[in-house]
Design a protein around this nucleic acid. Structure first.
Lengths: 342, 342
DNA sequence: TTGAAAGCGATACCAG
DNA sequence: CTGGTATCGCTTTCAA
């Protein structure tokens, strides 16, 4: 169903000049009234006239003009991810937006799909954000950070698997997740551990360190266990393919990247007649609701994340004092949550 | 882990004046070169000098200044949802962004969490977007549309369950989903149909019409079937509570809002010893991957959505010709996908 | 081929 | 208490 709106006689967009004219005052007075400038006292009748004029014209200030004059913006730019994001991340994002808005920032998500890292940074810099907060997969190079800083960004903060030169980087060591999963499986007596590596592009930054974490934990344990990387896509066919050749692999456990991949793989294994956890223990990660709904209940790795409020406060602190040090956060504590699948 | 970046001696942000000075030309020339203005021919050596100067200074044009001068922007504003969005929606959003960028628009997602509908519209209008594309839940009133149009927006498009006065509204009739679910259940011989209504706030715009659709289909069938609305939250406790009193309800089927709610409820029913589909048929909606992974496989309602490209092209068309009519789309064709749970 | 200058809209100084 | 006015960075006529 569609509808053509009536042409609302698009006159020119009203400016503060129009408001001033209608109210019979100067533009300066309009500005004072509308911004409640406390340094200047305006008579109440005048205030009323100005407000009424603004209302009548449907006046909305022009953000570009304002920030041009002010020399800075209150924009916090959040680069949006290219990859499908999980429910965990969505909620985190909402929290951050809410908290930043409460601190009087304007939150703008800016996608950069189809742009290279440096092109994207340039595009972001054109908006002159006061801060850039990059979550998750990082599309930010040292050069990109420099471009942003040069364009006036007070804070460039990344939260992800790796450090970025020049930015305040909160490094989430993804290896810790692999370590927790592996230690749990070793404890359970498993000695042949498969590690699912998503076939989907863009997840390498997460999957590789997680795999490395498994390898590290296994090597450290010194019990002669074996680790095997298994590429798998997030769909039924790919999982079925992997399940079909499971017995040839000679493994007795699998760490399936995260709970969603684990769900798909566990299903495929069961359909192929592989007993979980008897023949094969399965562990996911992220501790999503769905894990508790599966049968057997999915063992997982729970990850401590900073809250949205903490992130927002960090942004604010760095904006106010760009040179100040950020105290070490104990990010990314990971612990296994054993359930029935392992 | 954290890191304090070296203070990069934040000089003032370079402007085109700085570039001009360094290159030994005027600001006009800088503008011509950097924008590849074809109406003016600049000598090659000059072009090179300008480009090198811009590069050396790390010059990035100031979007606000540019659009102020131009009198318009290429910003398409996508209000972001307040509610947790599913994977379906995330992918749709990415498609749209990609397609709009290909049409040379700047896509900006702007959250309005914690703002009323009209405050939000005002905040959006300050950015002077050339178009606003509101997806899903609608935080846009007739007045909001007027504010946006007055501020220069050429296109205000909504895609959601209801029409918005003044906007180009693509109405997705959510009732069709309920109708499809109900007709399917009636065909299967079910006569007592429960309808899950999410307890989470913000979903009423979807859940109410879906419920209405079920009622309509049942009334239309004239077979004397019964419909009962069942409030349930998206967590295990709530689902378990509903499952515990299932047998008292005297129903033999349930349409569970969408696949995710269906998953939680089906799990709870099974744990309570209610046989699915024997004692109770379960139908979801959205046709997510997870439905195929459940056992029994979840019956669902598949919904035809416009593609991201189509939406982007619609935006572009309306921007270029704001008065033009939009042809009727056959949005939201819904069809049942029977599997094992019903 | 290049440069000078006007002006987009809002703000804040300084006079009146 | 209120009103001129310069200014932010950039584009685009108009002159030279």
């Amino acid at each position: 169903m569609s509808q053509t709106p009536k042409q609302s006689a698009e006159g020119p967009v009203p400016t503060s000049t129009d408001v001033a004219r209608l109210a019979g005052v100067s533009r300066a007075t309009v500005s004072y009234v509308l911004n409640n400038t406390s340094a200047v006292r305006i008579s109440e009748p005048t205030r009323r006239r100005v407000r009424e004029a603004a209302e009548e014209l449907g006046y909305v200030p022009h953000a570009a003009a304002r920030s041009l004059r002010a020399g800075h913006t209150r924009i916090v730019l959040l680069p949006t991810a290219h990859i499908p994001v999980g429910p965990l991340y969505s909620q985190f994002l909402n929290e951050i937006q809410w908290a930043l808005r409460a601190l009087d920032y304007t939150v703008v998500q800016y996608g950069s799909i189809g742009l290279g890292a440096d092109e994207a940074a340039r595009a972001w810099a054109e908006l002159r954000p006061v801060a850039v907060l990059s979550l998750g997969e990082i599309a930010l190079t040292a050069h990109g950070v420099q471009v942003l800083k040069r364009s006036g960004a007070k804070a460039v903060i990344t939260l992800g698997p790796q450090r970025v030169e020049g930015a305040h980087s909160l490094v989430m060591d993804q290896r810790a997740i692999g370590v927790a999963a592996a230690e749990h499986l070793l404890e359970r007596g498993r000695r042949g551990i498969g590690v699912v590596v998503p076939a989907e592009p863009g997840l390498e930054l997460f999957s590789k360190p997680r795999l490395a974490g498994v390898r590290k934990a296994v090597a450290g344990a010194g019990v002669g266990a074996r680790v095997e990387a298994l590429t798998m896509a997030y769909d039924e066919e790919s999982a079925a393919g992997l399940a079909a050749r499971w017995r040839d692999l000679g493994l007795d456990a699998v760490y399936a990247y995260n709970d969603e991949y684990a769900q798909v793989l566990m299903r495929a294994l069961q359909d192929a007649g592989v007993d979980v956890p008897g023949e094969c223990a399965v562990v996911g990660a992220d501790d999503l609701l769905l894990g508790k709904l599966l049968r057997p209940r999915l063992s997982t790795v729970h990850v401590e994340m900073p809250t949205g409020r903490e992130m927002a406060e960090l942004v604010d602190r760095v904006v106010r004092d760009p040179g100040g040090a950020v105290e070490r956060h104990d990010l990314m504590a990971a612990r296994a949550v054993p359930r029935e699948s392992s």
